[in-house]
Design a protein around this nucleic acid. Structure first.
Length: 562
RNA sequence: GCCCCCGUAGCUCAGCGGAUAGAGCACUGGCCUCCGGAGCCAGGGGCGCAGGUUCGAGUCCUGCCGGGGGUACCA
């Protein structure tokens, strides 16, 4: 609202002054920003700079003209022309006080905005092969995908979360053979994990569980039937494990979409044939190829191998058709950066198939490098040398793990040192913001204990909130909706964790400078409402990123053994 | 070679084309008769290099240098 109000003032001034400025057309895009320097007010606009450049007049003069034409508003305390020609708006305190009413009125919904317009968007994430436990790298995708989905919901999109289950390709077959080997060994038979198969201890345990559940009956099956059975049993159990791990992170999916469904229904081959009809697929050396060089790829890529098996890419094309066919307006893929090569291909295919490539967004996450005690831990699913996400959660806890994975831009590679995050966990910003929340809860408890009852906001004189730290906190609280919109538009959940830290810092500063519960009843009432609003914003924002907002935290044990 | 990401404070990272570039950690010095000191305040230090676009560039474009990742009829 705030931005819109200021923008409309500027717009009216522009219309009014159009003739005087000799401006043929109004600038189509007006914008205001929050200046970095406090002295520059709450909002600043650069229109005068743009208009000045366009009509060849000194921007400061233009700014002066515009200011003369600005409509009066009792929400604006001061308007100034500054620097090269910025117009700075300082909001009246009344405006800031008003935000507390807004927070109270909207409650849990405060911060929600509508930039999505109810668009149906599907976020597909994790989608790790169900051949073993999730590891830390996939953890980043899990957390970012889930937080982004929540963020988009808060921004007015209708969101569905989906996990694509690779249960039909080469890896699934290798997995089945690996499980088979361990299963046979379990019954004393000679067997070996195939070349390129899954060597990890996980498969041994999994085979043992299957052997316990099904006994020897799988032994007698013909090979092909046995492999089918073991693949199905193995994948089902892996998915259960994956689901359990994700549940610890608070992540759930609306849909688990199996690749086998695309294969069994013949839709992968259908998709390939469609590409052929559009003239971008051809046969060569017994395989079917996609002309990805048309889309900037350095070479064409195989869709169907000469063995008759489809590649991941072929399934991806069929899968995308399926997604759009289900009526989503927008698809968001959360992929690891190691898959970036597939992006051009797939969006090329989308274009050929008549979809708007803009409607399929790819968010590439740079990789997570895991460290333990300063030493990098090399991970390989094949050899089974890896730290699972479960182990990480055991050591660090879901809140700290989740928050840490959300503090950085997805464009940045992330070094995650387990020892550092767990041993220095008190320095983790997640505790900083949770502490702010708990502190506020504690104040509210204290007030109640003192017999102070919060009056309805309508009966509280908010005008007593005039301290710099009070106003600063109010500004942070007021900014929540626009921060949600920005983070959603940028598809950047880390923008939100940053914001939460700003609110927490704003609160801590306020707390240090201002005592809430005092003899002054009016001031106490106003400050209680301010604190409650800050708590509400922290809680709502933490809910979006999926981190808990505790009402109390365990006290540090000062007497810990030295 | 080609493709993607990154290069900002001693370290880890933010930064919506705007004015005097911010946090955390680390370091130094302060702040509890009172609501939780897991806090607050103060201090030092920084946009890889070279061009270009723009009234204005950490931000956009080109080239170079450095780091990470990808580049299979693997996923």
């Amino acid at each position: 609202m705030s931005e819109a109000e200021v923008l409309s003032l500027i717009h009216r001034a522009l219309e009014d002054a159009q003739g005087e400025l000799g401006l043929a057309e109004l600038p189509e895009q007006l914008e205001v920003v929050h200046p970095r320097q406090k002295e520059h007010g709450d909002y600043a606009t650069n229109v005068a700079l743009e208009v000045g450049a366009r009509v060849g007049r000194n921007p400061r003069e233009v700014a002066e003209v515009l200011v003369r034409h600005l409509p009066e508003s009792d929400l604006v305390a001061k308007v100034e022309v500054a620097g090269p020609g910025f117009i700075n708006f300082t909001l009246a305190h009344v405006w800031l006080h008003r935000v507390l009413h807004e927070v109270e009125r909207q409650g849990e919904a405060y911060g929600r905005v509508d930039v999505g317009g109810g668009e149906r968007v599907q976020v597909e994430f994790v989608s790790a092969n169900p051949t073993g436990p999730l590891h830390v790298g996939t953890g980043r995708g899990a957390v970012v995908g889930d937080a982004l989905a929540s963020l988009l919901e808060a921004a007015g999109y209708r969101v569905e979360r989906e996990y694509y289950v690779n249960d039909a390709g080469t890896q699934a077959a290798l997995f089945a053979e690996s499980v088979e080997a361990r299963y046979l060994e379990r019954f004393g038979r000679e067997a070996e994990v195939p070349e390129g198969g899954y060597e990890g201890a996980y498969v041994v345990e999994l085979a043992a569980r299957i052997a316990d559940d099904l006994g020897e009956k799988v032994l007698e099956m013909p090979r092909e039937e046995r492999l089918d059975k073991l693949r199905e049993e193995g994948i089902r159990r892996s998915l259960d494990d994956i689901r359990a791990t994700l549940a610890r992170f608070g992540i759930r999916f609306d849909t688990w979409f199996p690749e086998s469904e695309l294969q069994d229904s013949g839709r992968i081959h259908q998709a390939v044939e469609l590409l052929r009809e559009r003239g971008v697929a051809y046969d060569d050396e017994g395989a079917v190829w996609f002309e990805s060089t048309r889309f900037g790829d350095e070479k064409d890529r195989v869709l169907i191998r000469s063995s008759g098996d489809h590649t991941y890419f072929a399934a991806d094309v069929a899968y995308m058709r399926d997604k759009f066919g289900r009526g989503f307006d927008r698809l968001i893929y959360i992929w690891g950066a190691d898959h970036h090569g597939a992006v051009k291909r797939l969006s090329g295919a989308a274009e050929v198939l008549g979809y708007d490539p803009e409607k399929a967004e790819f968010i590439l996450m740079q990789l997570v490098a895991l460290y333990r005690g300063g030493e990098q831990v090399k991970m390989s699913k094949r050899t089974g040398e890896m730290i699972s996400l479960d182990e990480l959660l055991d050591e660090v806890g879901p809140d700290a793990a989740r928050y840490t994975l959300l503090t950085r831009s997805t464009d940045t590679a992330l070094d995650f040192d387990i020892d550092l995050v767990s041993s220095q966990s008190l320095d983790n910003p997640v505790y900083y913001v949770q502490y702010a929340h708990a502190r506020i809860a504690s104040i509210l408890r204290f007030a109640a204990e003192q017999g102070v009852t919060m009056r309805p906001l309508d009966e509280v004189d908010l005008d007593v909130l005039q301290e710099e730290t009070e106003l600063g906190l109010l500004r942070k609280i007021a900014a929540f909706p626009e921060r949600v919109a920005l983070a959603a538009n940028l598809r950047a959940p880390h923008r939100l964790t940053r914001y939460i830290e700003e609110v927490a810092a704003g609160f801590h500063r306020f707390y240090t400078a201002c005592r809430v519960v005092t003899e002054d009843e009016e001031l106490t009432q106003a400050r209680l409402h301010l604190a409650a609003a800050a708590r509400r914003v922290i809680a709502n924002a933490l809910a979006i990123v999926g981190v808990s907002a505790p009402d109390s935290m365990e006290r540090l044990d000062e007497d810990e053994e030295a």
